[in-house]
Amino acid sequence: MVALKMIELKGVSKKFDGIVALKNIDLKLNSNGVYVIIGPSGAGKTTLLKILALLSKPTEGHIYYNDVEVDDKAISPLRRRFTMVFQNTVLFNTTVYENIAYGLKIRNLLKDEAVKRIRDVMERLGLNGLEKRHVSKLSVGQQQRVSLARALVIEPDILILDEPTANLDPENTAVIEEEVLEFSKTKTVVMSTHNVRQTFRLADRVAFLYGGLLIDQGKTSILDDPVDERVQRFVRGETGYALNHG
């Protein structure tokens, strides 16, 4: 199978009875690297990522994967090519190991290969020795690392992360950012954040979302010297008027 590289949204809108969450979004992702969707809360980031992950259908518009329009029949097989990590960590009510193994069981991966991959990803995310631990007995940081491990172990073509470090301390944040950068060397990460500094640390390309509208997109320089007043206000508010890429 050809790796999934190209995603394109054309004129995508999403309404939740009355509320317009996304308005006429055009977005194209077509190479390795980290795509960051940045914007204040309520901007529509989660809604946009769920549409990209084919978990939610747009009210209007078209989605293309590798230049082929996604129709209902294609959704299920396509969904296996990528995975999304949710903002509020969602875990199956079982052990760490069983959580991480879920996607591999669904894919009927050979046992030996599965065990190897799980061991490897647990090592990388500092989860060694927690195999049999029930997920309810983990710290928030460990829980978020389990949900990232569960996504990485599938070896998706595209990794979609919804504010993956929003509730985390600097140490856990660093672990996750490192994985994001590593993964993005060969594949695509699409992640949302409301953190300007994180965007500078990770992003190859940025899209600024505000009130369901895609205001601007491009290199991180669009945040450096924002043309749009809304972007300007957001960036300043976030960084306390002093731009610091650190």
Binding site: M84, Y102, A151
Partner: peptide, 17 residues
């Protein structure tokens, strides 16, 4: 939690799974 079904799907599960 309704997110469990979405989670399973994004990890590759069919609707029934």
């Amino acid at each position: 939690n309704p997110d469990i079904r979405e989670l399973a799907k994004t990890l590759g599960a069919s609707d029934i799974q």
